[in-house]
């Protein structure tokens, strides 16, 4: 362009429009492992009807989703799967940690349970409760919509050059349990 457009004006408006579009068409990826998954199903089913908030299109393929809802405890064997699915999702993406188990490990302070998924992947929204009621999940989605409207996509990673995105999206081979040498501690 010949004229130097004040960059911030246009970009801000477009950003807001984009954020508005995004927040009203969240496609959740239900990473339902345990009890919270049943409440997640209840939220999507007839009585609570998540469709009222534009977030009812549950897609089980991570490539099509932009919101991961981790519902239930994540254990040692499952965590590499969770990380892999998080990597497979395209930008922009958000993550809701639903329930006490996903957020902190909950009552399961045991050898196998990961004590909070936020130790290993980024989380945008935490929902307390064991399990949270459907209303709480709906509230979390409304709050996340506010956050998306306010902050946009945080880093604008989706606007990066394709060449810069490629290495991120490439499926980096994460070590599953036991493959890494560090796992085998002394004395066992």
């Amino acid at each position: 362009m010949a004229i130097e457009v004040p960059e911030n004006v246009v970009v801000t408006k477009l950003d807001e429009l984009a954020s508005w579009c995004r927040k009203n068409s969240l496609w959740p990826m239900p990473f339902a492992t345990a009890c919270c998954g049943i409440e997640l199903m209840a939220t999507g089913a007839s009585k609570h009807d998540l469709a009222r908030f534009g977030a009812e299109v549950f897609r089980f393929s991570p490539r099509q989703c932009d919101l991961m809802i981790v519902a239930g405890r994540v254990v040692m064997k499952m965590l590499p799967v969770l990380q892999r699915i998080w990597q497979q999702m395209h930008e922009p993406k958000w993550c809701i940690s639903m329930g006490a188990c996903a957020s902190t490990g909950g009552v399961f302070d045991t050898y196998a349970v990961v004590q909070g998924i936020d130790r290993f992947i980024p989380v945008d929204m935490y929902i307390p409760g064991c399990p949270p009621r459907p209303e709480q999940l709906i509230q979390a989605i409304i709050d996340l919509q506010d956050k998306i409207q306010r902050e946009g996509t945080i880093r604008g990673a989706e606007f990066e050059l394709a060449s810069r995105q490629a290495p991120k999206r490439a499926l980096v081979e994460l070590p599953t349990y036991g493959r890494s040498a560090a796992m085998i501690g002394p004395g066992r």
């Binding site: 040692m76 965590l79 050898y111 196998a112 349970v113 290993f120 945080i154 880093r155 070590p175 349990y177």
Partner: peptide, 10 residues
């Protein structure tokens, strides 16, 4: 064992 995983950031 439960803490021994790589961390993914944004």
């Amino acid at each position: 064992e439960r803490h021994n995983f790589p961390v993914l950031t944004r």
